Computed example of a mutant assay.
Amino acid sequence: MTSREPALAAPAEPIGRRIERHFDALLEARGYRADTAQRTAIVQLGQWLESFLGGKSGWLRRLPAGIYLWGGVGRGKSFVMDAFFAAAPVAAKRRVHFHAFLQELQERMREFAGQPDPLALAAKALAGEARLLCFDEFHVHDIGDAVLLGRLLKVLVEEGVGLVCTSNYDPDGLCPNPLYRERFKPAIALIEKRFLVLQLDAGEDYRLRRGDQETWGRYCWPQSGFAEGWIEARLGLGAAAERDAVVSVNHHPLRLLAMGGESAWLDFDELCRRPHSSADFLWLCRRFRQLAISNVPCLGEEAIDVQQRMVNLIDIAYDAGTELLLASQASLDDLCRGKPHMDFSRTRSRLQQLRPVRPGEPTDC
């Protein structure tokens, strides 16, 4: 009788190789080729995660708490991070967007109201749920965000959460407003000291490559050239739709020109010239799959608070996959001229992914 040796289990695929393989598969499926900066970033992400999960530190320095990936708009930061996130062999992982995450953090803080340091308690609760947190479009433009994000990062790093952040800004450029930059300096120092900072910038906005664009809505101009009722027809709002409706959003009123099913039509003045917050825009994009916004002006001529609301709205709708219809008297080029908000390069890139429609053209508008 002959004995047989037990079969040896195949060695586990290294984490870095697994992440690169998934990245390559996504590129092939889309017909893309990675540039040198993108390839370097995905390799670094895989190597960092393998060391992070294995608890490996070097002789001369601590293991980085995370990776901070920054560069201009359309350079593939979110694509690289999403490929990494999907392949990362971590059960307790989350990919979150800036606006939605801040709202969640504030809601969690309310759960700890009346206790010492609700922010630290909320951050520790988050740390108990996620071993890996991927944070998309990290940016800071008001004092509230600066205070929350600065302290949040410190607690998450101390609690051992692995962090991957993407941003349009290098760490030192995260909080340019001198009124509260001093409050955010410790957070900038933390990123520069504890994170591996990678610049992803090949000098090209890949979203604007002809043939590569994925439209997520329509940009219709000039608005006055379209027939009466065309917005409602495009949204499928028939006789049963509510018109001139007022809904309560986060305990204050929001006026809609029309709404029905998963579609709503609003005026720019209502959304961006009134003091609506990102939480209101999040509510809209969760409640409605399609949004039409009419009478959009040339944004570079607007006050900075109006521009900021439009920037936030576009960010939230884009991330949520909301189908957007913008109607304006101005062309998209004119819409973006003037002295726009510092984040408007990202907004412009996303607006240019809307399909342009003019009166009389064959369209489903």
Rank of each mutant, 00 (worst) to 15 (best):
T2I: 11
A7C: 06
A7F: 07
L8N: 10
A10Q: 13
P11Q: 15
R17S: 12
H22S: 05
R30T: 08
G31S: 14
R33P: 05
A34S: 14
A34I: 09
D35F: 11
T36Q: 14
T40G: 13
V43W: 06
L49T: 00
E50R: 08
E50I: 06
L53T: 11
P64K: 08
P64N: 07
A65K: 05
G72V: 09
R75T: 12
S78W: 12
S78I: 06
V90P: 02
A92M: 13
A92W: 14
L105Q: 12
L105W: 15
Q106D: 03
R110I: 11
A113Y: 14
L119P: 02
A122N: 05
L126G: 04
L132R: 01
C134Y: 05
F138H: 15
V140A: 04
L149S: 01
R151Y: 12
K154V: 02
E159F: 00
L163D: 00
C165H: 09
D170I: 06
C175E: 03
P186G: 07
L198R: 08
L200G: 10
D201H: 15
E204T: 15
Y206S: 00
L208E: 10
D212M: 15
D212Y: 14
E214T: 13
Y219C: 10
A241D: 04
A241C: 08
R243H: 09
V247A: 05
H252Q: 12
L256V: 01
L257V: 05
A258M: 11
A264S: 10
L271V: 00
D280H: 08
C285A: 10
L291R: 10
N295A: 10
C298Y: 10
L299F: 03
G300I: 00
Q308M: 02
R309G: 03
R309Q: 02
I316N: 01
Y318P: 06
L325S: 06
Q329T: 01
C336E: 07
T347P: 04
P356H: 07
P359E: 03
E361H: 14
P362G: 02
C365R: 12
